[in-house]
Design a protein around this nucleic acid. Structure first.
Length: 219
DNA sequence: ATATCGATTATCT
DNA sequence: GATAATCGATATG
C-alpha cells in the first residue's frame, strides 16, 4: 500500500469520459465479498462519448438498457453481449448527459485465488505469467488470463447485470468501488477501440504502456 | 505466429 | 431477424 486508499468521488466521474478513462488507469477496482476483497489495478479502459460517437450505446438515445449512461456519474452500467459475457462501465458527466468508460482489463492484486476460481482456472500456484508445468508436473496458472479483457474481468469479479447494473461505485456502502492508492502511471498509450465498427478510427482506448495484463494476444 | 469460427441471448429494427 | 464495446477453440503457415 502506497498511501491510505481513498474512494473516488462523484466529481471524479463528472467530466469528459476521455479524461475519466485516462485518470482511471492505475486505480484499484475492488469487489468486497464475505471472504475478503477482490482487487485489480485498472490497466486498460475505453471512453464512450454521449454525442457524436456512433459506437456508444447511448448514441441512439435513452432506452431501458442504457438508462444508466444518462444518469448521475459514478454508477455501474453493465450489459450482456454475444450471449456470453458481461461488460462493466461507469457513467460519466452530469445527470441527464450520457457518457461512460468501459473497464477492459485489470492486473490482479488481491483475492487472486478467488478470481481464478470464478474464471474456472486452476488457482495455484500462480507465480508464473504463462500456463506451463513445474518440474513436478503441476499445472501453473496464467495470471494474465484472469482479467485481461472486459468479459474475463467481469467474470473474475462476479459482475452481472442483475447484480450490479445501476449500482453506485462511489458509495462507502457499495460492494463494488474504485480507490486511489497513490499508484502513479508512467506512460499511457492511446489507440483505437476494440471490437467496434462505427466510429472505429477514434483513439479512445487507454492502456498503461508496457503492462502485461492488457487484453489481446501476448507480444 | 495469425486467421477464422461457433457459442448463445438481450435488444432493437 | 440481425446484430453485438467477447472469448476460447481450432485450423493453418
Amino acid at each position: 500500500m502506497l498511501v491510505a486508499p481513498t474512494l473516488l468521488s462523484p466529481s471524479f466521474f463528472n467530466r469528459d469520459p476521455r479524461r475519466v478513462a485516462r485518470a482511471l488507469l492505475g486505480k484499484l477496482l475492488i469487489r468486497k465479498t464475505q471472504r475478503g476483497n477482490l482487487a485489480g489495478r485498472i490497466v486498460e479502459t475505453e471512453a464512450y462519448l454521449g454525442q457524436g460517437d456512433a459506437a456508444a450505446h447511448s448514441a441512439a438515445g435513452k432506452t431501458l438498457r442504457n438508462a444508466v449512461l444518462f444518469g448521475p456519474p459514478g454508477h455501474a452500467y453493465v450489459y450482456f453481449i454475444y450471449g456470453n459475457h458481461y461488460c462493466l462501465n461507469v457513467s460519466c458527466l452530469p445527470d441527464g448527459v450520457p457518457g461512460g468508460v468501459l473497464f477492459r482489463a485489470l492486473e490482479p492484486v488481491a483475492g487472486i485465488e478467488e478470481m481464478a476460481k470464478a474464471r474456472g482456472l486452476d488457482p495455484a500456484p500462480y507465480e508464473m505469467l504463462e500456463r506451463g508445468e513445474l518440474p513436478d508436473g503441476k499445472q501453473v496458472l496464467c495470471l494474465r488470463k484472469i482479467a485481461s479483457g472486459p468479459g474475463r474481468m467481469s467474470e473474475a469479479l462476479g459482475v452481472t447485470r442483475e447484480r450490479d447494473n445501476g449500482k453506485s461505485l462511489v458509495s462507502r456502502r457499495s460492494d463494488l468501488c474504485i480507490v486511489d492508492d497513490g499508484f502513479r502511471v508512467r506512460r499511457v498509450l492511446v489507440t483505437p477501440r476494440i471490437g467496434i465498427v462505427k466510429s472505429a478510427e477514434h483513439p479512445l482506448r487507454y492502456v498503461i504502456a508496457g503492462n502485461l495484463y492488457v487484453s489481446g494476444p501476448k507480444k
